[in-house]
């Protein structure tokens, strides 16, 4: 038990590090896509245009009602039949995580936008700024700062949820941990402890980065 050489050797650690790389890459892609898509969805839901509002509302409420695991299965098994293109597990996983998180980000962004004081928008309008300029220069920057804590919490959840993509065969961190302890000497506890430490460190870093953005102004 005291000899952990089977775990702390170059080969095993490289294998696990590769899994962390996949996890982080998946999370980074999904964060970027869901952030942009979430803003677009939030704006659509706040739009004056009726059709846009309904489409966005259906997407957001529908997606929020589904288990993420179902969305991952759907992206891997069903989506290729619909679009007629075969998707590798990584692509399907990235699509599922992005599409799912976008709906949650949209609600955070919408709340942030609605919380921007109306008087600020009037001040900007009274100076002759166009609605698009007001959105870009005033509304969104203020809204994003206000919603940073909720957004970071959502992205931490996303990073952890990348582990669910193990079910469609992505060799991310959790799946690789499973592979390691499924071999002699069959000891799950040290492996789980190491994985927990790695996830904690990654999410702690993510939360710290978010906090820094949050306190930069305001």
């Amino acid at each position: 038990m005291t000899d952990l050489g089977w775990l702390f050797n170059r080969g095993t650690l490289t294998f696990l590090a590769g899994g962390l790389g996949v996890t982080l890459e998946l999370a980074a892609i999904a964060i970027a896509i869901s952030f942009v898509a979430g803003i677009v969805l939030a704006l659509a839901r706040l739009s004056r245009w009726h059709v846009l509002r309904i489409v966005a509302t259906i997407y957001i409420e529908g997606m929020r009602a589904l288990p993420l695991l179902l969305v991952i299965f759907f992206a891997y098994f069903a989506l290729p039949r619909i679009i007629g293109v075969k998707l590798d597990p990584f692509t399907a996983g990235a699509i599922a995580l992005s599409a799912f998180t976008a709906a949650l980000v949209a609600e955070i962004v919408r709340a942030g936008i609605l919380a921007v004081p109306k008087g600020l928008l009037e001040a900007a309008a009274s100076q002759g700024l166009s609605p698009a300029q007001i959105l870009r220069i005033v509304t969104l920057p203020i809204a994003v700062r206000q919603m940073m804590p909720a957004l970071v919490a959502q992205f931490v959840t996303l990073l952890k949820d990348t582990s669910l993509t193990a079910v469609i065969g992505i060799l991310e961190l959790t799946r690789r941990g499973q592979i390691v302890f499924a071999q002699p000497p069959f000891q799950p506890i040290p492996v789980f402890a190491l994985l927990a430490l790695i996830y904690f460190t990654a999410n702690f870093g993510l939360a710290q980065a978010g906090r820094r953005l949050e306190t930069r102004t305001l």
Partner: peptide
């Protein structure tokens, strides 16, 4: 109308009770 209104607003400044400075 948007454009014409913006043109007028450029020539009319406004100061509000609650200041409404851009906080960021």
């Amino acid at each position: 109308k948007g454009g014409e209104l913006a043109a007028i607003r450029r020539n009319v400044g406004m100061v509000f009770q609650a200041f409404h400075l851009y906080p960021h």
